[in-house]
Design a protein around this nucleic acid. Structure first.
Lengths: 202, 202
DNA sequence: GTCTATAGACGGATAGAC
DNA sequence: GTCTATCCGTCTATAGAC
């Protein structure tokens, strides 16, 4: 989680970078723009991070961690029915996207850019592995709370759920159709919940 | 479909742009790079398209049309079982991604950039509407061939399928895990097929 | 350590010769 | 119409003053 107290200079630069990326997009985010946003010289950014790649890495780690936290917090619900829990988790993820569309779009932009640029190598892979980790954890929590087990491998269901959330995110970023996104996630929740089996049976 | 015969100068520039985007990514695709690839001066590109935006639009229209064609062709199968038809369609889409990863990544890059840049305004929306159109058409063809109807609205199922293919594409571009992508699409096929109902019953 | 200044490369776009 | 040459902006990165 984010520490309180006076943020370090490095943290302030990461926050500034994040604001620029959310607002203007990754393509328009230069070390100069970040320096302007943070109110320091571009040389200071160079000195602190040594290049754009390491800075972007830090921003992504920050965003992915925040997203994972948000997803886990979303599971604090009073529901006990499998489909209700999953539905609520997916809806609260959509809520996050709707509240910070720029952040979600930035994560997608970084993924795609990281696949092209050698100096961001490994970043998309780490990002994606972390997403899957969070998904597997979420599914495990749901299973525990609803006292069920999943009838497919956890990793497979996690990948399925991740593909759906990524796809819905992309669609919503394009058309901003709240109702359509909710309907898709409702279908997703029903599908995932259909793979729940009572824990006692075999 | 692509016309045969000597391609026009405009078509040759679009093809050159496509090659650069696939190979180097959208972020590294400049009008100068396209001009180099096509063997003309950068002024010629300016004259032909009047800027980067219109050129990118043409490239996307071309790619999306090709993708729609490929998806529809994929439905020429001997299968009659719903889940088998859907599985085969999804697999042949994955095959397309695997054969031309740069092209699929370019489409995603254009979508995200189009959401940020005013001179590409409307491009992601048109792109996405076309995807949905193709998906609805595919679902209708499956329903006709297997002699079934869908128990949810066609648009909703199309959005669900599109979210899944987008999500799987993104995942595969990152981890290149063929087996995992196939397993996810198998789950997707089963889910979609589960919404088939016999045409006679109500 | 922090700044200003600048090097060096690349980008979009245009002017003007042919 | 097509080219070369060029304007002017932006970028990353660094040199050197303080």
């Amino acid at each position: 989680m984010t520490e309180l107290g006076t943020p370090s200079r490095r943290e302030r630069l990461v926050q500034a970078a994040l604001r620029v990326m959310e607002r203007d997009g990754l393509a328009a985010t230069s070390t100069r723009a970040i320096a302007r946003e943070a109110g320091v010289s571009s040389a200071a950014v160079q000195r602190e991070f040594g290049g754009f790649g390491p800075l972007a890495s830090d921003v992504v780690e920050h965003l992915v961690a925040a997203e994972g936290d948000a997803a886990l917090w979303a599971l604090i619900t009073t529901e006990n029915d499998v489909v209700a829990i999953v539905r609520e988790a997916l809806r609260s993820y959509l809520h996050l996207v709707q509240q910070r569309p720029g952040a979600e779009q930035t994560l997608l932009e970084v993924t795609l850019l990281g696949l092209r640029r050698a100096d961001l190598d490994g970043l998309p892979e780490r990002q994606y592995e972390r997403y899957l980790e969070v998904m597997r954890e979420l599914l495990a929590i749901v299973a525990r709370r609803a006292d069920i087990r999943w009838d497919v491998e956890a990793d497979q269901l996690a990948r399925f759920a991740l593909a759906l959330t990524d796809g819905v995110t992309l669609a919503w970023l394009v058309d901003r159709d709240d109702a359509a996104a909710e309907r898709t996630l409702e279908l997703a929740a029903e599908t995932i919940a259909a793979h729940a089996r009572s824990r006692q049976t075999v």
